[in-house]
Amino acid sequence: MAASSRYKFKKANTFANTLFTVGLWTITTLVLILITGLLLYILFKGLPKITPGFLVGLPSEIEAGGGIGPFLFNSAYVLFISLAISIPVGVGSGVYLAEFAPDNRFTGWIRTCVENLASVPSIVFGLFGYVLFIDVFDIGLTILGAGVTLSLLNLPVITRVTEEAIQAVSPDLREASFALGATEFQTIAKVVIPAALNGIISGISLAACRAFGESALILMAGGTGTSGEMWDFNLLSQGGTLPVHLWYIQSEALVEDAKEIAEKASALLVLITLLITLAIRIPIWIKNRG
């Protein structure tokens, strides 16, 4: 009887495991199909209508046929500013927390704060940027304010991902490096960080794609408009970006082709996000294959 009961119990567990695995694969497949279908729908609906004039043309408030040139430029400019600030500070903070910070309550409190900041809604950072750059420094809605505020949004994500990626590196690599006579700095710079590079790059890619598609924060810190020039590098110009323009077109625009502009802008936004991911990941794939 005991053997028969064990056999039935094992058979029931095997069936349950199989059923659970099939259920997970089914749900995952359905989600992937849904996301892929949605992305393809957006791309195929908007991409064929995009022309070079649309990409570099100036937007129009009344007449049809306007472009998105200044907003597209601002999107790239604000993203560059945010990453130029958040990547060095975030990666450096992650390395310090993983390799140099003492294991005590204060360090644990810092890690908790970083994790909490990573989950704060972007509009809260936008309100902080609004208060800092408009109420305190009184410089208005600018590219500078949008870029710096966006870097604050990226910073906790990059810091936490970097720390976890470095902590996941095998201790054997560190011991082998020390055994060969390398210093602690040489070990971290030439052994630990290259070994953790895949995880670090994944975090940067996630932060960059999220930043490029951000709208609420930009709306609060950068505004809804631009200077009206295509290549305006003035940091104190208005910092409206492509996602903000898309929101404006969908909600308040008066032009008769607002729907078509929204479709093209949506497709372009999705395409650029995918290209950013590939541009960051492809060098790592090439390195791993080599």
Score class of each variant (00 low, 15 high):
A211I: 06
H245P: 03
A168P: 06
P243F: 08
K10F: 08
I81F: 04
T14Q: 03
E99N: 03
L40V: 14
T26K: 01
K259N: 09
A196R: 01
G145P: 09
R281G: 00
T26Q: 00
G23L: 12
G145N: 05
T28M: 12
I123Q: 08
D257L: 14
I218F: 06
I158M: 07
S5A: 13
S215V: 15
L274H: 06
F137N: 04
G140K: 10
L79W: 11
S93L: 14
L34N: 01
L144E: 05
I201C: 02
L83V: 10
W231F: 15
G90M: 07
L58M: 13
V56S: 02
I139P: 05
T241I: 07
L152C: 15
I188S: 00
I166Y: 05
L19T: 13
S4K: 14
V89M: 08
I33H: 00
T159S: 08
G147L: 05
R174D: 06
I249G: 09
A195F: 05
R281I: 05
I62H: 03
I35C: 00
T224N: 07
S170N: 13
L217I: 08
A262V: 11
L278C: 06
I81L: 12
P121Y: 06
I286W: 10
I193F: 06
A101D: 08
I33K: 03
F133G: 07
M220P: 01
R289L: 08
L274S: 05
M1P: 09
E184F: 11
V161K: 02
L32W: 04
F44K: 03
R105S: 13
V157L: 15
T187A: 10
H245L: 11
E99Q: 10
A101F: 05
L206I: 14
F15K: 07
T28Q: 09
S5E: 12
S170K: 12
R105K: 14
N104D: 15
G147I: 11
D103C: 01
G239P: 10
V124L: 04
F185H: 00
G240S: 07
A176C: 15
D232T: 13
A64Y: 01
K259E: 11
S177M: 08
E61Y: 03
D135S: 15
E184A: 15
A196G: 11
I33S: 07
Q167Y: 06
R160N: 15
I143H: 09
L72T: 09
R289Q: 10
Q250T: 14
T28G: 05
G23C: 08
R174E: 10
A262L: 11
D232M: 13
L278A: 13
E214G: 03
G67L: 01
E115I: 12
I193V: 15
I249Q: 14
F125H: 10
G225M: 08
P156T: 06
A76H: 00
G181H: 02
P171V: 09
C113P: 02
N198I: 04
G37H: 02
R174W: 03
S170T: 13
